[in-house]
């Protein structure tokens, strides 16, 4: 038996909007610690990892670990039927083949039940080691979104380089090139506007803007985004989900020409 009651239902809606473009089908894993998801995109270039801790739910009951395969497009369709102020409850029986989403209006005068069929999904669960990153950049999420959007009109690859001067996003395309440099700035009115750059080692990596742009779908979830870079590792783009968890996107860098490419 699984019953998760989330007062801020809009969070779940936003979460779905931020992963459904990247992943079609995925297993949601429920355990006593929380509600989580790990999935790769179809080309195995990007990975999304979601965690909503049990403490963030008003009511969290999960008798035994449960993995529910869902089509995220369909799930998103159902969640779109919930109002932004609605309380969302996710219910499922152990061994059942459906999941129920219940939407309660804030005044409790409207209650909607949506039952969705589950599916069996073969998914490979990857172990993500905790790593020390060479550079960590924290910046306003809408700024990051804007940069990715702007750069993708010029080229299809972004080079993110962190030096002691700041972080540089650059791209090149047929029509020209673009460079955007952000410098550390903690002198701001609101802490979330700060650009904080922690650099242990300078790093420069290229990434496909197409993926970066789909990561920025999570912008409504959080005012800030944290980008962690290491030369030997995929970049991590992390958005906090209120106080209750996070969405982390991992993206494999583009490999430099001289190195062997995987088929």
């Amino acid at each position: 038996m699984l019953e998760l009651r989330l007062v801020q239902g809009s969070l779940l809606k936003k979460v779905l909007e931020s992963i459904k473009d990247l992943v079609n089908d995925a297993n949601f894993d429920c355990s006593s610690t929380g509600f989580s998801l790990q999935a790769m995109d179809s080309s195995h270039v990007a990975l999304v990892s979601l965690l909503l801790r049990s403490e963030g739910f008003e009511h969290y009951r999960c008798d035994r670990n449960l993995s529910m395969g869902m089509n995220l497009g369909n799930m998103s369709k159902m969640l779109r039927c919930a109002g932004n102020d609605d309380i969302i409850t996710i219910k499922a029986d152990d061994g059942g083949d459906t999941v129920t989403f219940m939407f309660e209006s804030p005044t409790q005068d409207k209650i909607a039940d949506f039952e969705m069929k589950l599916m069996d999904i073969d998914s490979e669960h990857l172990g993500i080691p905790d790593a020390e990153y060479h550079s960590i950049v924290r910046m306003p999420s809408n700024e990051f979104s804007r940069i990715c959007k702007d750069l993708s009109t010029i080229g299809d690859t972004v080079v993110i380089s962190v030096t002691k001067e700041g972080v540089k996003f650059s791209t090149a395309g047929d029509i020209g090139t673009a460079n955007i440099v952000l410098r550390q700035n903690t002198t701001v009115d609101k802490p979330e506007d700060a650009i904080v750059i922690e650099m242990n080692e300078p790093v420069s990596l290229s990434f496909a803007l197409r993926y970066m742009n789909s990561f920025t779908k999570a912008t409504p979830l959080s005012d800030t985004v944290t980008i962690s870079l290491s030369s030997e590792l995929p970049v991590v783009v992390e958005y906090k989900v209120a106080e209750m968890g996070y969405i982390r996107y991992y993206l494999a860098p583009k490999i430099e020409e001289e190195k062997d490419t995987k088929p």
Binding site: M40, S43, H44, V45, A46, L47, E124, H125, L126, G127, I128, P129, S206, A208, L233, P234, Y250, L251, A252, P253, K254, I255, E256, E257, T261, K262
Partner: peptide, 12 residues
């Protein structure tokens, strides 16, 4: 040129 995420993380 695009790297693969599977080359960074191992399956569990």
């Amino acid at each position: 040129k695009q790297g693969n995420i599977m080359s960074f993380f191992k399956r569990v």
